[in-house]
Simulated assay, not measured.
Amino acid sequence: MRLLLIIVIGLIWVVNEYRGDGVVLSGNDQVADKTLTYNDEQSSGRLEKAFREKTSDLMVEDSGSVIKLLPDDNKGSRHQRILLKLASGQTILIAHNIDLAPRINSLKKGDRLKFKGEYEWNEKGGVVHWTHHDPAKRHPGGWLEHNGRRYE
């Protein structure tokens, strides 16, 4: 059993190191965040590449313009849903968990929204979730930023 546990931990470490975008748990189970910060052009390029290559589980940081505020998803964990257009022209859905982070009530169409979270590919441009802290401290925290205020 101990050997199996060592093998599993080793495989997780290898996969995260190979991908270069995973997380590594330190000795005290605190999350080491490997998100790279880019300017808008570089980050949108990274998201554009992730969309083109159908990549998921990628921590990203970028910003976009709100093109539509969708109704909240109230099934299971509640999420504020926001459709953004990135500098590259790509659209992306932000799914912001409002059970773990504050809802952005002042947000409106045309506003600029900065975000950090985990990208998941879909044919419509992708979804960014984990835009909040992780109470268990096992996943890199994300956030949304609107008008100078951070929501995490």
Score class of each variant (00 low, 15 high):
residue 70 L to C: 02
residue 90 Q to L: 04
residue 117 G to S: 10
residue 57 D to Y: 12
residue 47 L to W: 01
residue 51 F to I: 01
residue 51 F to Q: 04
residue 48 E to N: 09
residue 55 T to Y: 05
residue 75 K to H: 07
residue 61 E to I: 13
residue 90 Q to C: 02
residue 62 D to Y: 03
residue 43 S to M: 12
residue 80 Q to G: 05
residue 61 E to C: 07
residue 93 L to G: 06
residue 103 R to S: 09
residue 105 N to K: 15
residue 59 M to G: 03
residue 23 V to H: 02
residue 53 E to W: 09
residue 36 L to F: 08
residue 49 K to C: 04
residue 87 A to C: 08
residue 69 L to H: 03
residue 122 N to M: 03
residue 64 G to F: 13
residue 72 D to K: 06
residue 103 R to G: 02
residue 122 N to E: 10
residue 123 E to R: 08
residue 33 D to C: 00
residue 98 I to Q: 00
residue 70 L to M: 12
residue 52 R to L: 09
residue 81 R to Y: 05
residue 91 T to P: 01
residue 85 K to A: 05
residue 96 H to Y: 10
residue 117 G to C: 04
residue 43 S to N: 04
residue 123 E to F: 03
residue 109 K to E: 15
residue 73 D to P: 00
residue 121 W to L: 01
residue 112 R to Q: 14
residue 40 D to N: 09
residue 34 K to R: 13
residue 101 A to S: 14
residue 95 A to C: 08
residue 124 K to F: 07
residue 93 L to A: 05
residue 123 E to S: 06
residue 98 I to V: 13
residue 55 T to A: 06
residue 77 S to D: 15
residue 97 N to W: 10
residue 120 E to I: 06
residue 89 G to E: 03
residue 37 T to L: 12
residue 62 D to V: 09
residue 103 R to H: 11
residue 82 I to P: 09
residue 18 Y to A: 08
